[in-house]
Write a protein that binds this DNA or RNA. Structure first.
Lengths: 216, 216, 216, 216
DNA sequence: TATGAATGAGGGTTCATTCAT
DNA sequence: TATGAATGAACCCTCATTCAT
């Protein structure tokens, strides 16, 4: 990326600017793996390749580091989702599938996915952060799905339904799949690949469990 | 000795037998609320109305208390589910709904529900407990649903489907609903009542999102 | 001793009277083995076959138990030594040997020997007890030896000498032998039997290391 | 940086290197005075002029500190003794006296002397450390004396004797004198000065208690 | 008298935070 | 900017002591 830089390290300048991101990445991994309280700043620093004191040059406290991890990690994601929604041409079913796939690519498959589990674990200890997360992730995320569902209902592609519950039913498997990978997943070996899972999930969601003739 | 005595001092003997359960109940609440590491044994003891030292008369360490909370809390539940399954008369759709409803009554609506969140949060720190939970709760619980689905497919009430993914799709909303109450729930005020939620969830699951004519 | 007593226990009466001695015996063993602070009253009680609370029926505190162990353990011994000294007929060398032998039989070979090590270890923590021990054991014990030495010097059996230092030289090997058995002894396997040791010690003491012609 | 600075702040670097020795010195004093269990790390730290946490930068636990105190304290001493033995020119009696005197200067009169008492007190609680001490101090120390005695016997300066017991008789007064200073010594005020004591001890040892004509 | 459940002060240990270099 | 030695508050756990039975 920087063609003229010397060996030692990717140019002091670059390091300095990259430090906060490196530290937040290290912190995220450990927070997700162990929880906030059980994570030692020593380990965060070590994983980021700096000394413990350096952390305090960039973050005022462990709690501030936590907040930064959450806030920096999630904000860019929703923007993209909302932009996608505004540009998409096509039917609601395809849009829904496209959005879930996109979410998987941008969040579910990256280490950002851990934020979901982290936030669930720590919401009780950080009500303000939880509030922030709720407003900026949950509400906006549900809003995206709601828009799609309403568009589908308006076009008669989707049935009339309780939209809020439908959002839950749509999102929950994605959430659980994501959470799973950072909690009990390691106990389990039979998980199929995510994209196949997503397709099956969409099929079941769109068509239901029942055979055609029994539908009411 | 005193047969008519009230709560105040329920005879030393009575207390001694009840203590472990009281302590585990207090611990469960706090572990769920704050996580294992962030929970102080002082607080557990205080909530159970005893002093810190008393905890050690019944549990060898904080970690043993944690294991006891998980193991004692969940074992009775699955037994009942399996018994119910063996006795039920009726179609698969009704059985599925009955089982989810029963689970809600016995777990979801009680403080045992917190174990789900707790286990997700702490699996990384207690791999052996996670393994135990996986084998005794997850595997058995999925087995219950699998049996119902296979029964429904055999009777042609349910479509052919990828059963394992269907189990995810069925359970995930229940899990998320449960987890939610112990994490971000407090940020949210619009949640409808659980039984209505369950009914809507079942309806969507059985029939899918699409209108009848578009089904493939 | 009590011929008509029943099985259960050597008659409740006897137990009650014997309790303090049993407790002190158990305490002595553990204090010697581990030191005062590192000994748990739980273990003392268990070794004496009673419950922890029972200790407090006989001793007001751990410290009082310690004092009792020291004081009860040593008082009878010196009395006998002084009586022996007053009655002995014979030369000073024989008397000296007889006294050391007697000490070995009455103290060194019994578990009272541990008191020596115990007192050395704990003197710093219990100055008053140490003072008591010094006055009642050390001073009186040295007095016994001093009397013998002076008797021997008066009868010209012993050389003129610095008596106080001579007492040290006489007693130190006995003390060390005793202490050894309760400290590093277990690391050592080659120790000869005590009585042979005593005889050799006496021989060396009386005659010195040098060959006859080199004495000055 | 500041070459002329005084004690106050001996440059962080200097402190860091000196810390372990300072901490071990403080710990030795208190362990000897009170015993291992009765010594609080708070007090050790305070005596060394640091905070409690600092101890853990240099020693992994209280027990490791104990081991370090024993092992670091004694090893240098025996080396010197063995070197002295190999270089000495003169008769065995003079060598014996020289060695005891040297031991007094290097150990008995320093605070290292306390290690003897400490080891005796704590051997039961630290069997492995006791084993180490036995092999590296006791065995080697006795070996030094044994060599001298055998040399003296070979040159006919010393009588034939049971060498092992003789070693005991020679060392015990030194040991007791040392132990005494760290236990009951403070109860006693009449102790003469160590070097005079040593000389008298040597005289008695070499010549025995008996007058010349009575020797057998 | 004897028990053993309960207490709570105290000590070993950890770790977020500070600061001299 | 970066380090890492030092700090000390806080937490888990122990155990002498108490007290209801």
């Amino acid at each position: 990326m920087n063609t003229t830089e010397i060996s030692e390290s990717p140019s002091r300048q670059r390091r300095k600017e990259a430090r906060p991101a490196e530290l937040m990445a290290a912190a995220l991994e450990l927070f997700v793996e162990r929880g906030f309280t059980a994570t030692k700043l020593d380990d965060v620093a070590a994983r980021a390749g700096v000394s413990k004191g350096t952390l305090y040059l960039y973050f005022a406290s462990k709690e501030e580091l936590f907040k930064a991890v959450i806030q920096q990690g999630i904000l860019p994601v929703l923007d993209q989702g909302e932009e996608m929604l505004s540009q998409f041409q096509g039917d609601a079913g395809a849009l829904l599938e496209a959005m879930l796939l996109r979410w998987w690519e941008m969040v579910g498959s990256t280490h950002l996915a851990g934020i979901t589990k982290l936030m669930i674990s720590e919401a009780g200890n950080f009500p303000e952060v939880a509030q922030f997360y709720y407003e900026n992730v949950i509400v906006r995320g549900r809003g995206l799905i709601r828009t799609v569902l309403e568009r589908g209902i308006a076009s008669k592609q989707f049935r009339e339904m309780d939209v809020e519950t439908a959002i839950d039913v749509i999102l929950a498997p994605q959430m659980m799949f994501t959470i799973w990978r950072h909690s009990l997943g390691p106990c389990d070996c039979g998980k199929q690949d995510p994209e196949a899972y997503l397709k099956t999930h969409m099929n079941l969601l769109l068509n239901g469990l029942l055979t055609g003739e029994k539908k009411k």
